[in-house]
């Protein structure tokens, strides 16, 4: 039961990582990041059950709160990018380059 949850969470996390690395739309990348965070939440819950301690569950509450704050800031940044570039595709956003 717990190992299945951990395996599932690892799969979700990997999907998130692959999404961030392959997609080029800022909003989809952001959704993939959220997927990674929620995969971690699943791990925390499963491990908390394994250890019989509440630490993992408390951690999940913190992660959810911070993910909400991050979403607010992230969407604001994406809006400001859209105002400048009329696009949220990272391929169109390349003023800064070495």
């Amino acid at each position: 039961m717990i190992s299945e949850a951990l395996f599932f969470s690892a799969v979700l996390f990997t999907i998130g990582v692959v999404g961030v690395l392959t997609r080029r739309n800022a909003i989809i990348i952001f959704m993939c990041v959220e997927l990674m965070l929620n995969a971690v939440n699943l791990s925390f819950i499963a491990l908390s059950r394994l250890h019989g301690s509440a630490n993992g569950q408390v951690f999940v509450l913190f992660v959810m709160t911070i993910a909400a704050a991050e979403a607010a800031v992230g969407l604001a940044i994406i809006i400001s990018i859209f105002r400048h570039h009329k696009s949220v595709d990272l391929r169109n956003i390349n003023l800064l380059k070495g």
């Binding site: 965070l37 400001s80 990018i81 800064l96």
Partner: peptide
């Protein structure tokens, strides 16, 4: 704005690793 977007996306990505 571009710097903020890049920092945000990569920062949030790295937070995922740290958290895992």
């Amino acid at each position: 704005a571009e710097a903020a977007l890049k920092y945000f996306l990569l920062g949030a990505f790295s937070t995922g690793f740290l958290l895992y």
